[in-house]
């Protein structure tokens, strides 16, 4: 994909995002707006997974660990500080640092890729059981009781920075959440277009070659993992805000699995895919939640199995290829005699 067409698609995406940001409150009633607000928070979480897995090649089963840490950090700090601004910053910073620390042990410890999945999964399970066992007064941080498996109710909502007396209305929370999604999307597009991003993708393609070219692949993977952790933390912060509540279920295996399904359904190796996957799946879950006939998890399982079997690349890559077929090839044809009959129009990634 040439730079100019990349820039064009980025600007188009940005325009769509901003249009939704402004337009949604005009179209949706309050209930629907609250619903799409949580979809958007999950889309941010999906982006973190899509970035580290689809581009960094790091198979993390533990994005929900950073998501949950972000949520709890926000809850604890907001309850103590009154003002939410510091809480938001810490809800991003703490998961970033935690991911960096975990990443340091994994990537500098020369742990093989398969174990990265196992370790991240284990960390999630440990956090789940730790937060589950925080019932009682002994587990109160300042004014904030962690509450064990009951979680923390009545988490104060975001407020206008510096004005704890002005909490955000649901409509404003939508602006904040959607704004965060647009921002994270833009940030990741920027990262991927930079030299750093190119090296990240190269490492995914062949880590040995990247090392032999002089790139410290451990550092790159650590940074990718930490950025992913921070984004997941931001998503956790938005999620806690949405419900005014957080409980250890954020660390559950079901949450981790859901994120993977968002990315697989939407398309690995794209940014749009995880966003669309998250929103579609969340919408489906909310539909299923309204009825009692079929178990929602069962449906999720069937969807995952169907996608893995029938559309293993995910929706967005399939659509992109279909579009590319409709368009005439945009690249000049390869000169004859030096290669193959048709080298034109190859879009990245096999």
């Amino acid at each position: 994909m040439s730079l100019s067409s990349g820039t064009a698609s980025f600007l188009a995406m940005l325009a769509i995002g901003l249009a939704l940001l402004v337009g949604a409150p005009m179209v949706f009633d309050l209930f629907a707006l609250l619903q799409v607000t949580v979809f958007v928070a999950m889309a941010v979480l999906a982006l973190s997974q899509g970035f580290i897995w689809g581009y960094g090649g790091i198979m993390s089963f533990g994005q929900s660990a950073f998501f949950g840490l972000g949520g709890y950090t926000y809850a604890v700090v907001a309850m103590n500080a009154g003002d939410s601004t510091g809480a938001v910053l810490l809800a991003i910073l703490l998961p970033t640092l935690f991911a960096a620390l975990l990443g340091y042990f994994m990537f500098y410890g020369r742990i093989s890729d398969a174990y990265v999945g196992v370790i991240t999964l284990t960390v999630t399970i440990i956090l789940f059981s730790v937060f589950n066992s925080t019932a009682g007064d002994a587990y109160t941080i300042g004014n904030a009781p962690l509450g064990g498996f009951n979680g923390m109710p009545a988490v104060p909502p975001l407020n206008i920075p510096g004005r704890p007396d002005l909490p955000l209305e649901p409509e404003q929370l939508w602006y904040a959440s959607m704004g965060c999604l647009v921002l994270v999307y833009g940030l990741l597009r920027g990262i991927l277009a930079s030299r750093f991003g190119r090296v990240v993708v190269a490492i995914r393609e062949n880590e040995t070659r990247a090392q032999l070219l002089g790139y410290d692949t451990r550092l790159y993977k650590l940074l990718v993992f930490a950025i992913g952790g921070g984004i997941a933390g931001a998503a956790g912060c938005l999620f806690t805000n949405w419900g005014g509540f957080i409980s250890p279920t954020v660390f559950s295996l079901a949450t981790s699995a859901q994120v993977l399904i968002y990315v697989l359904v939407g398309g690995l190796g794209t940014l749009l895919g995880p966003i669309l996957g998250a929103i579609a799946i969340q919408y489906l879950i909310s539909l299923l939640g309204a009825q009692q006939v079929i178990n929602a998890n069962l449906v999720l399982g069937v969807i995952l199995a169907a996608f893995v079997l029938l559309v293993p690349q995910g929706v967005v890559p399939v659509l992109r290829d279909a579009l590319a077929r409709l368009r005439p090839p945009s690249h000049p044809r390869a000169k004859p005699g030096n290669g193959l009959p048709d080298a034109a129009g190859v879009e990245a990634k096999p």
Binding site: A324, R325, P341, D342, A343, G345, V346, P350
Partner: peptide, 10 residues
């Protein structure tokens, strides 16, 4: 061929 690239051409 592979994907959209024909390698064998008859």
């Amino acid at each position: 061929g592979y994907g959209r690239i024909p390698i064998l051409a008859g």
